[in-house]
Design a protein around this nucleic acid. Sequence first.
RNA 1: GCCGGAGUGGCGGAAUUGGCAGACGCGCUGGAUUCAAAAUCCAGUUCUCGCAAGAGAGUGUGGGUUCGAUUCCCACCUCCGGCACCA
Length: 946
Amino acid sequence: MPRYNPAIVEPKWQQFWEQNQTFAAPRLPTGEKLYVLDMFPYPSGDGLHVGHPEGYTATDIVCRYARMCGKSVLHPMGFDSFGLPAEEHAIKTNTHPREQTEKNIDNFRRQLKMIGFSYDWQRELATTDVAYFRFTQWIFLQLFDTWFDPQSQQGRPIAELPIPDDVAAAGEQAVDQYRDEHRLAYQTHAPVNWCPALGTVLANEEVIDGKSERGSHPVVRMPLRQWMLRITAYAERLEAGLEQLDWPESIKTLQRNWIGRSSGAEVDFFIGPTLQFAAWKEARATAGFPRKPEDDVLRIYTTRPDTLFGATYMVIAPEHPAVERLTTPEQADAVAAYCQAAAAKSDLDRTELAKEKTGVFTGAHAVNPVNGQPIPIWIADYVLISYGTGAIMAVPGHDERDFEFAKKFDIPIVAVVDPQRDIETAARDDVLSAQAVFTGDGAAINSGDYDGLATAEFKTRIAADLSQQGLGRSAVNFKLRDWLFSRQRFWGEPFPILHELDADGNATDRVRPVPAEELPVDLPHLDDFKPHGRPEPPLDKAPEDWLYQEIDGVRYKRETNTMPQWAGSCWYYLRFLDPQNTERLVDPEVERAWMPVDLYIGGAEHAVLHLLYARFWHKVLFDRGVVSTDEPFRKLVNQGMILGEVEITGFQRADGSWLGTGEVTTDEEGNSIEKATGAAVSAVRVDEHDAEKQGESFVLKADPSIKLDSRAYKMSKSRGNVVNPDAVIREYGADALRLYEMFMGPLEATKPWNMEGVNGVRGFLDRAWRMIADERSEAPALNAAVADVEADEEQNRVLHKTIKAVTEDFDRLSFNTAIARLMEFTNYFLKIDRRPRAALESFVLLLAPLAPHLAEELWQLLGHTDSLAYEPWPAFDEALIREATVEIPVQVNGKLRAKIVAAADADPAALEATARADGKISEILAEKTVVKAVVVPGRMVNFVVK
RNA sequence: GCCGGAGUGGCGGAAUUGGCAGACGCGCUGGAUUCAAAAUCCAGUUCUCGCAAGAGAGUGUGGGUUCGAUUCCCACCUCCGGCACCA
């Protein structure tokens, strides 16, 4: 056989696997099951990026390894194919987005197959498949049909929702409305992020700093009818469920922060005449804390009920329903102006500009329930209507924001928490004299009977007291908001919802779900895909026969919003289990057998949204009995980002003279300028041969006084540092690509690409080939050094050490070190003239998960006729690894002074004696007194001397 | 500002429990082979001093615990990622 040629070997085996359906998973697992999932890609027009195969290679190795260990493996792949780019392309070319989408999928599939991943391709799916989104729509119907029972913390059928008597008495329409208010899928008119440039409304998480995540277009707030999903109902369970998951702690933290659970208390402040306060308080003491606040109180949420005595004013959000009621005539104009201005502000303005606090006094006062003090009520946009009750008690002494506000508007500040020993004396004095803010825990002061209590104790005590007096109750809040679930796009799943129309063709606000058996609701034909620039969805342009329907004499209009891209990716892992099922989304028997996903690998960019949305849907499906597990993804791993090649950059003035990185800064627009003069400078790419390391940084070889910048950047088209996997495969082969992606460093780490490194692992594959194959012969032939001989002791030790290390490395997804061990094996056996065939066979099996094409080819060359995909994984023998003698370092005062050779099982006394006998050591010890000898058997000897 | 993660040769990285720092690979240097080059093979390669034997320093910085610290503790610096008025 000639030289190793991946261009021939790789397609050959890819064809073999496909023809033999080598990786088809059975309907039900036949032994121990392993469900390994990749985050399926969005098939963009650019094709695969080298970042994709990183995680995909890792899971592929896990799967191939697991099959050899006898596990039943499910490893599918599909496409998250709804998305804006295809629709934008459709608008431009006036072709159906499906056309472009399918072309892109074909390209992605071709690329994925070229890398030799062991997917069960029969299970391939795309979220844009009508047969697939039929069930996405079906799940939406489930959400629509479910309400969350806070008592049992469970989603239940809407039919089981208890209807209060007063609602029932109000008639059928009131009951329907009551139900609609409790569904997990509901409609709202809340202000949304309308992006005129994209012609769509965006979810909060798609807006970054007031601009669209995609394209950075400005976003404005406007009210629009939207579908929402009540994910907040599941906040408690989504938070609690994290604990049991084998996920990176950092991702769990990210989700916890996103969910943002906080606990505190709701407290009612009386806003009637001060004279009536006592009577009100008395009434409350008997009546208790009402479910909904009456008009004569302002309900607030606080996490620090212990600072109640320090509340010197209150703030309500500009959108708070009590604004009008509270505003006095004298303040009416100012309040109206303020609220109007606040409404016009985007979220960006409200945060960014509000470094300086703004607000307006309502003219009204409330009575502090703990001390009867009247305090002013303000309106300020630093209080958000969407969090808590939309109103706060302001404690400027112990809250940064309140402090700032009180300073600006000259509102009294009262210290009620003594920091005690937590901070320096001077700082503490500032806090006690209300000159400074302190947000930590301490001891209560100025708090009546509670004085002296520690913060934590105060909190529980006052919560109980307030509750007993009917003034407050413990409460939990979440930062998590309900999920804005509709998009004004064409290329998404249509909602299976009909809107009732009255005789004049106007919507009645009553909706009716499309029955499950009538699904799917396919997308209609459109003559063109151009948005009309209004917030109404493009589906409003659909033909009448799609848009309107008459049932039982009532006319209905279809919902024209579509679902967001997240919808399809929320449940694809379930469909992979049973992709051809036309009856239901997954057969329960199959679901029970394969779920949960045992290993899920993907990018950290999905840490919050995708993974939280999918968990939410899963929990609803669990509550509704569709799936058998409470959580979908047992173990999660995030692969790190792959950056472009390292670039060394220097800066030059207009005249071409160099200046160091320290002399350069950026102006507001992000341009590089010279610090001293403010003149524009240009960044220049410096060849690595023209740079050298000096101390901490790189400098110009020609002028070492010029410091350079050395770093790798995110791959991007604009920077021109994108590496195309097709090109890598063409030049080095798929196995080399796979191997390099894994050899770069730990899977989770961010790491720069380096083409020389690909060449390096290709060199290893070449050597592995030469170790077994004869590269000079024309026909396939074994290397003459391959011999049917028994491995000697040392060869066995190398082999079994390698098996052990590779096995353990695979188990902990440490592929870079596994490859290093295989390289060591190759380096050793290449030097041997008679290479035991059995050892080489084991080596090929160890290599197989990493470089499957090469391994299959060598396996065949070694005389096997079948694929090695299900060949048993080599076992190691600990006894063969053990060495008779070991080299042991001898230290004096912790410094390495000599090395001794001793029996591996030598006892401490023997080791110490051997160490003392060493020429070098005895020389050193002769002049000193040994205070102590530390001997760790098999590891080291250390003499502590004086 | 808050919450995560990370800082080890020229570069990517290794060191699983506190026990020989730098495995493995790239790059570089020298050599063999070649008319020459590529490829391949051999040797070397943390830094400083030294012809060498060897000595000293060394895992972002400063301190601490320990016979012994890349690993544990405290403080700080830098970089990366996320969040950002959530009461």
